[in-house]
Nucleic acid binder design. Structure first.
Lengths: 363, 363
DNA sequence: CTGTTAGCGCATTCAA
DNA sequence: TTGAATGCGCTAACAG
């Protein structure tokens, strides 16, 4: 039934055929009040007949904004950020907004490229899922009046919206748990400390050790120097190698689950028993942390809550509702599994079935 | 040094200050020939001084196209698609193109929403990373003249560009390997067969069994009926439960690695030994398949090659270079690890170190 | 109730 | 070598 007058019909085409003005067509299609039923029906029918699809670019030019938002992550291969993308994308779509995903690999050049492009595209808002390496970007966004929300990091400028996690507490939870297991010599491994989350986790580790009156041997600390170490599993593998070449700790605390996977892999390969010889704790509670053998004790963060808060804040800023989220802090909790079991269960010589279980479903 | 005349200066602002016409500014900024050195310098300096950032929307309206492409995936939580996003995003960025990531959960409504929005945004092209459930979408894109490339699926219309994997051969590799290990009773589990890749894997399984003269017991086949089964690990877990309630196969072939992770988890929980009691083979060779214990024997596909071919094809279609990729087929290979080891190594009673190793680096 | 008109910011043709 | 003028497709204020 489609008469293919033009491949990409515009309001003008509809207007000509319906013998009304282009403005009238606009009114009809935008459901503006004050159009007679007769004209409305005729226009809608012709629009449908022509297979009319509005040109969002023209509309955006007129409105001086677009209906898209950006999601900036450092690594689309990391399931921690996948989860954020998953939540944020869903919420924005439900708002009728399109979402860009920007993958930066923590590279300041790439970060800037995306920010500049976002400004050029007159993007409605941005959710930044980590602390940008290139801090100039925040200023640029401010200058151009583009609202943004930072997840899991603080910006220098207090008036920006940030939702952060209590990473120091997370490390305390981990270390205290190891100590409960009677472990006193604990190694730490992390990727380079390029954002607040990583710095606080490290800081929390040192503070917790101090609190317990334990000394930290610098040889038992492996922190990668390279920003480009994006293969976190391999990093954990190498870190464990390095650490074992200098000593034999009873516990290893990894700054992220993926690093912990590498640690476990290395220990498995060396036939070092987990947790009997060395206990391992990770951070993030990614979906696979319950699947790996032994399943990983780890720190879980309320990611969904963070994303929800972040998205709601951004939407309200976009709509000028004036709602701001100033440095809201969310609390982590520890998920005890096989790699550093519950002391009571463990002493009984067996693991409870629940400790083997799945992580809560992601959706 | 910035004189903040306007928050978002336009060419008009620059023109006024430089006392030239807006057209001249456009010439300068686009490096058109035929502008005096003097004017060029003055304009550039003022543009810089004002912090001018071009308005991509206006340019796109004029050009009737945009500098963005879409990447459509069914599930951002799946590392198989993460890898594709990773490659494609990198290549498009290097082309100076922005990329949308669209997450559909295989939902035909969401697929359509993204396609319609892409048309509205006058997107330059789309890379579709799986077979769309909603086949009407392909027609819509054709109608509106938007170039697209389909990865890992065929479209009904032969003139569309498709890059496909030889999934039938992949299943043959898996089954033949199990048979080499002396295994004759093989179970199969898969998510719902909503695309060609899954259907061919299943078909390949049956053909390979037939070729070997083995009968397939329908009770040893678990294929989820629900499209919404997006938690693949849990699916594998449940599937194994179901299968074991009806029999005890010597081998389980899973349609994807994530399903295989669930299978392994279940077997581990039941203290069923892998591979001594049951061998397991997955499909996709996701990064974690080498990390899990036992590490997973799986079918590896040339994802990077596929993405590269797909992107190059799309770029050439966008630039009207007329290059088409008609049903190019790429070949898989088997990666032998612990869950279904090499028969020779295995008979010697031990695994070679290499079988424990990492998957090749992703980057 | 409907039409006229005036831009949004830019690229580009035609004149000068 | 530069400027004036036009239009991409749409929204919205204003007029009738």
């Amino acid at each position: 039934m489609k008469s293919n007058i033009s491949k990409n019909p515009t309001m003008k085409d509809i207007a000509r055929i319906a013998r009304v003005s282009q403005a009238t067509v606009s009114y009809v299609l935008n459901n503006s009040a004050g159009i007679s039923q007769k004209v409305r029906e005729r226009v809608l029918e012709i629009a449908d007949d022509l297979g009319y699809i509005p040109n969002a670019i023209a509309r955006n030019l007129k409105n001086k904004t677009s209906n898209t938002i950006g999601i900036i992550v450092p690594d689309v291969m990391n399931s921690y950020y996948n989860e954020m993308i998953n939540y944020v994308e869903k919420m924005t779509r439900e708002q009728g907004l399109f979402s860009f995903v920007c993958n930066t690999m923590h590279d300041p050049k790439i970060e800037e490229w995306y920010i500049v492009n976002s400004i050029q595209q007159k993007i409605a808002g941005i959710i930044i899922c980590y602390g940008l390496t290139n801090r100039e970007c925040y200023k640029k966004l401010d200058q151009h009046g583009i609202p943004f929300v930072i997840l899991d990091d603080l910006s220098e400028d207090e008036k920006n919206s940030c939702i952060i996690m209590n990473n120091i507490k997370g490390s305390f939870l981990a270390i205290r748990h190891l100590i409960k297991l009677g472990i006193r010599d604990i190694a730490y491994c992390s990727q380079a400390l390029y954002n607040i989350a990583l710095r606080e986790r490290y800081k929390g580790f040192r503070l917790a050790m101090e609190e317990a009156g334990l000394s930290v041997s610098e040889e038992m600390i492996y922190i990668s120097k390279e920003h480009k170490d994006y293969d976190k599993i391999r990093l954990g593998y190498t870190a464990t190698e390095k650490i074992l070449s200098k000593g034999f700790p009873s516990g290893i605390f990894a700054a992220t689950d993926h690093i912990a996977f590498g640690v476990i892999k290395k220990l498995n390969d060396l036939n070092i028993r987990i947790p009997e010889d060395i206990s391992v704790i990770g951070y993030d509670d990614v979906p696979l942390s319950g699947i790996i053998s032994p399943s990983l004790t780890t720190i879980s963060q309320p990611i969904k809550k963070m994303c929800k808060l972040g998205a709601v804040t951004l939407f309200s800023e976009i709509n000028n509702e004036g709602y701001k989220a100033n440095n809201i802090m969310l609390e982590p909790k520890i998920i005890i599994r096989e790699s550093a079991p519950d002391p009571l269960t463990y002493q009984k010589g067996g693991f409870q079935e629940k400790n083997k279980g799945f992580r809560k479903s992601v959706i």
